[in-house]
Structure formats: C-alpha cells, structure tokens
Amino acid sequence: MSDTELSRILYIEDDSDIQAVIGMALQEIGGFTLEICSSGAEAIERSEAFRPQLILIDVMMPGMDGPTTLGHLRQMPATASTPAIFMTAKVQPAEVARYREIGAIDVIAKPCDPMTLSDRIRSIWVRCRG
C-alpha cells in the first residue's frame, strides 16, 4: 500500500442513493478503494482497520453529524491526522470557514458532478500533502 498515491478513502454518508452514486463514481472512475459507512458510529468502528488516506464525510447525518464524527475520528490514532473533506448541501460561507477550523481541508458542495469528483479529490489530496 503506497502512501504517495491516494487509494484508500473512508466515505461516510447516510443517504444510500447518494452512497451508490458517489461510491460508483469514486470506485469506477477514480479507482479508489472505498470503505463506505452509513453513520459516524460505523466509521469509528471500521476506520481503525481500514486505515484510510482520506476521509470523505457528509455533514448532515442523523445521530452523529459529520463534524462530530470527525472529532471522534481525530481521537483515534489511525485517523488522528488523516486529511478530511466534507460534503454538504449547505454551503454557507460561515460554515465553510467553520469546517476548515475543525480540520477539514476542503468542502465539496452537493450536488457535485460525479464524473469529475475523483479528479477533484485527488488534486485536493495532492495539494494538501504538498
């Protein structure tokens, strides 16, 4: 597992349809290895084992929301410093700034074009590491 290229993405999204679409886009087009979780709790359970290189989280989730989930993940060694990207339909500027404050490197607005999503994520990741 080379760490210089992005391959493992932890994807947390509660909406199954969006899961399907984005999941397909990232896997089929981007070729990433995805661990898809439907809730923050699941993500916490499975992140340790998966050891993601990038975390893609939906902000609005029932139960534990995106930011809270990220906060928990940050407490765990495997994901303490993993770059994270939020996905959200609510993109108010104040919120974007807040997401950055709590540790996201970028925010992707929904709806997004699944065809170009993988490239976007990859370039974000590269930029972050560079």
């Binding site: 969006i18 984005i22 397909m24 997004c112 074009d113 699944p114």
Partner: peptide
C-alpha cells in the same frame, strides 16, 4: 435527492 438524480444521470 438532486445529488442522487444528477449523479446517477451523470454516471
């Protein structure tokens, strides 16, 4: 829902 719709269509 639009995400799903648009995304699916896109794909």
């Amino acid at each position: 829902p639009l995400t799903s719709i648009a995304g699916s269509l896109s794909l």
